[in-house]
């Protein structure tokens, strides 16, 4: 890990955990933004992934399980000058926070979302996350998961997300570049990061991913949404990595008439403005 953002926080991840690669990727991406640490806010929920912000010396909002996105949206709406990044787990974002995932894509607040996708709940010791494949056996599903997996990239594309990418924890340099693009993208940007769980996921291992992942060719047309959807749903034969789709559109902050200007915390409320609001409620006008 590079020095600039280093903290002495002990994250307690298992040796070999994909989170280390993701942490490396995050810090490399932050370095590349050129932003000062006081200009960056890392937001997370709860879980092993959600502890990542404590290892990075920037502003940190480590909130509740599932609720990283609404907190991040509130931060960005109130002070659009901050670079707001959410980094949290798949159970957090796609399970407990599924509703917020759907609606913040619609909202298109300028947030970069990094999801540590290891298909498993690590902190509670081995239950399937929403992205787990059917048939996967967990500590609460001895005869296998019945529900089908949640397809994050396809859902994001269906909702019109402007930046949809997939990274891989074992390739921090590549993932870091995706993260940097996501941070720089004006609007809601998703980077789903494939992450082996060395303790609880014995199927989707480094070896397994090594055989499955395949970077998208340089000539992939990132503006082709239908093609992106096809790629997003690929899993059995190969798993595409890279930017599947990218198309800019106006952000929430650009469209909401009251967001541009001073951060909300620095705005004044002149007494005359309040008086004017009261007097507009005269019983009889004139």
């Amino acid at each position: 890990m590079t020095g600039r953002y280093e903290t002495d926080f002990e994250n307690a991840w298992c040796p070999g955990c994909g989170n280390f690669g993701i942490l490396n990727a995050v810090t490399m991406a932050l370095e590349a933004t050129g932003r000062e640490k006081h200009e960056i806010v890392l937001v997370s929920g709860i879980g092993q992934a959600a502890k990542l912000p404590h290892s990075v010396d920037v502003n940190v909002f480590n909130g509740l399980h599932g609720r990283a996105l609404p907190a991040a949206a509130g931060i960005k709406m109130a002070n659009p000058g901050l670079t707001v990044i959410v980094t949290s787990g798949d159970g957090d974002i796609y399970g407990e926070g599924g509703n917020h995932f759907l609606h913040n894509i619609r909202r298109n607040v300028d947030i970069a979302l990094f999801v540590h996708d290891n298909q498993v709940y690590g902190l509670t010791k081995g239950q399937p996350s929403p992205t787990a494949s059917a048939g996967w056996t967990g500590s609460l599903q001895r005869s296998g998961v019945i529900s089908g997996p949640f397809p994050p990239l396809a859902v994001a594309l269906a909702l019109g997300c402007g930046f949809v990418a997939r990274g891989y924890a074992a390739d921090p340099a590549f993932t870091s570049d995706l993260m940097l693009q996501a941070i720089r993208f004006p609007g809601f940007a998703l980077v789903d990061i494939l992450q082996p769980c060395v303790t609880f996921n014995k199927k989707n291992t480094y070896q397994w991913y090594g055989k499955m992942v395949q970077k998208l060719p340089p000539d992939h047309d990132v503006t082709d949404r239908e093609k992106a959807m096809t790629l997003a749903l690929e899993w059995e034969e190969r798993i595409p990595l890279g930017v599947l789709y990218r198309r800019e559109k106006p952000t929430f902050e650009q469209l909401h008439p009251q967001v541009p200007g001073l951060p909300l915390g620095e705005r004044e409320t002149p007494e005359e403005a309040v008086r004017a609001l009261l007097l507009r409620r005269r019983a009889v006008p004139g």
Partner: peptide, 9 residues
């Protein structure tokens, strides 16, 4: 939660 995020700023 959004309000708490905004309040944090």
């Amino acid at each position: 939660t959004m309000a708490i995020g905004a309040s944090y700023t």
